[in-house]
C-alpha cells in the first residue's frame, strides 16, 4: 500500500471522484488560482477548469447555499470551508436548508453535498480560529458528521461522503494534514457509523476521534509501560455514532475515558458518556472520565494555548483515576486541559 499524507489522501480522492463522475464539482474560497489555503486543491483548477473548480468570493452564505441548490439539481458539490470557524456565517444554510430540505419536502430531493475543511486548534491562531464544532453539527438531524484521524480514513470516508445522498460535515484537522500512513489504492471506502478498535486492551476503553486519536494512542503506549492495557476506539464518524462498538468495549473493560478537543459542556464526549451509561451501566467499575479542552475561548499566548489543549498526560491521569491508582505521567502536573478531577 502506498504511503500518503492526510492531505494527499484527500486530494487524491477528490481527483479520483472528479475523474469518475462529472457531477462532482468544487467550490470555495481560494481553492483555484491560490491552490487552496492548505494546498488541498493544488492544480485542480488547471486540471478541471473553472466550471468545476469554482473560486468564490468571501460569501459563505452564498456559496454554501448555492452548493445546496446544486445538490438539489443533481450535482455533487464539495465545498471547501477554509476553516470550520467560518461555517458559522453559513450556519443557517447548513442547519435550515441542507439538513432539512429532504425532510420537509417529503423526501422529494437528495442533498449530496460535502462541506470539508479543517476543524480544531492550530498553533496560536487564537479565539476565532481555533474552534471545534463537531457537537454543534452532530446535534442536527439530517447531517452526517465525519472526523477522520488517519490518511486512510480521510480517503475512505471522503469517498463514502461523495457517493452518498445526504449532506456531510467533513471535519479535517489541520494538525494532521502532514501526517502519513498507508492508504489502500482504488475504490477503497470506509462506511459511516463504523468505529475502529485501533488497539485492543482489557483494562480501560479510551474513546477518541480526529487529532485526539494520536494523543490517545500516545497515552496508551505509555500506559502499557505501566502494565495498563488500554483499548482505544477511533470513532471516525460522530453522526452516525457507532454506539454498539463503544458499549461492547466498555462491557469488557469496565472503565472508560472519553477524549475530545472541544469545550467540555455539551460536547461530543457528553453524548458518548451518556451512551455508555445507557448501554453499559452495570458493567462500569468507575465513573467515566472526560478529557476535554479548557472551557475558555482559545488564548493566543503559546503557554496558555498548550494549557487549553489536552495531552497524553491528561489522558493517562484520567485512566489512572478510573483504576483508582497513581501512575507517573510524562507531563508532570495536570495541564489546563480539563479532565474529571
Amino acid at each position: 500500500m502506498p504511503i500518503l499524507s492526510y492531505r494527499e489522501a484527500i486530494r487524491t480522492t477528490l481527483i479520483e471522484e472528479m475523474d469518475r463522475d462529472p457531477t462532482v464539482i468544487l467550490l470555495g474560497e481560494e481553492i483555484g488560482l491560490y491552490q487552496g489555503t492548505f494546498r488541498m486543491t493544488a492544480d485542480l483548477l488547471e486540471r478541471y477548469g473553472p466550471r468545476r473548480v469554482i473560486d468564490t468570493p468571501t460569501s459563505e452564505i452564498g456559496f454554501v447555499g448555492a452548493a445546496i441548490g446544486m445538490a438539489m439539481l443533481g450535482l455533487r458539490p464539495v465545498v471547501e470551508m477554509m476553516t470550520w470557524n467560518f461555517s458559522l456565517v453559513a450556519f443557517d444554510q447548513i442547519v435550515n436548508n441542507a439538513a432539512k430540505i429532504r425532510y420537509f419536502s417529503g423526501g422529494q430531493v437528495d442533498i449530496p453535498l460535502i462541506i470539508r475543511g479543517p476543524n480544531g486548534a492550530g498553533v496560536q491562531l487564537s479565539a476565532q480560529h481555533s474552534q471545534s464544532f463537531e457537537a454543534l453539527y452532530a446535534h442536527i438531524p439530517g447531517l452526517h458528521v465525519v472526523a477522520p484521524a488517519t490518511p486512510a480514513e480521510a480517503k475512505g470516508l471522503l469517498r463514502t461522503a461523495i457517493r452518498g445522498s445526504d449532506p456531510v460535515i467533513f471535519l479535517e484537522h489541520a494538525a494532521l494534514y502532514g501526517s502519513k500512513g498507508e492508504v489502500p489504492d482504488g475504490e477503497f471506502a470506509v462506511p459511516f457509523g463504523a468505529a475502529d478498535v485501533v488497539r485492543s486492551g482489557r483494562d480501560v476503553t479510551i474513546v477518541a476521534y480526529s487529532r485526539m486519536l494520536g494523543t490517545a494512542l500516545e497515552a496508551a503506549a505509555h500506559l502499557a509501560g505501566e502494565g495498563i492495557e488500554a483499548e482505544v476506539i477511533n470513532l471516525r464518524t460522530l453522526r452516525p455514532l457507532d454506539r454498539s462498538t463503544i458499549v461492547e468495549s466498555v462491557g469488557r473493560t469496565h472503565r472508560a475515558v472519553v477524549v475530545q478537543e472541544q469545550w467540555r459542556p455539551f460536547g461530543a464526549a457528553a453524548e458518548i458518556v451518556a451512551t455508555i451509561t445507557e448501554g453499559a451501566f452495570d458493567a462500569l467499575d468507575a465513573p467515566i472520565e472526560r478529557v476535554t479542552g479548557a472551557d475558555v475561548p482559545m488564548p493566543y499566548a503559546r503557554n496558555l494555548e498548550l494549557m487549553a489543549l489536552s495531552n497524553a498526560g491528561d489522558i493517562m491521569r484520567a485512566v489512572a483515576r478510573t483504576l483508582y491508582r497513581e501512575i507517573p505521567t510524562p507531563n508532570g502536573r495536570s495541564s489546563g486541559g480539563q479532565s474529571d478531577a
Binding site: I25, I61, A66, G69, M72, G74, L75, S105
Partner: peptide, 25 residues
C-alpha cells in the same frame, strides 16, 4: 417547484446554485 422556504432570503442562494447546475448540465 423546488420549494417554499421559511427563513427570509435563505432560499436565494439555493436558486443561484440551481441555476448554475442547469447550465452546467
Amino acid at each position: 417547484f423546488y420549494g417554499g422556504y421559511g427563513i427570509v432570503g435563505g432560499h436565494i442562494p439555493l436558486a443561484l446554485g440551481a441555476a448554475y447546475a442547469l447550465r452546467y448540465q
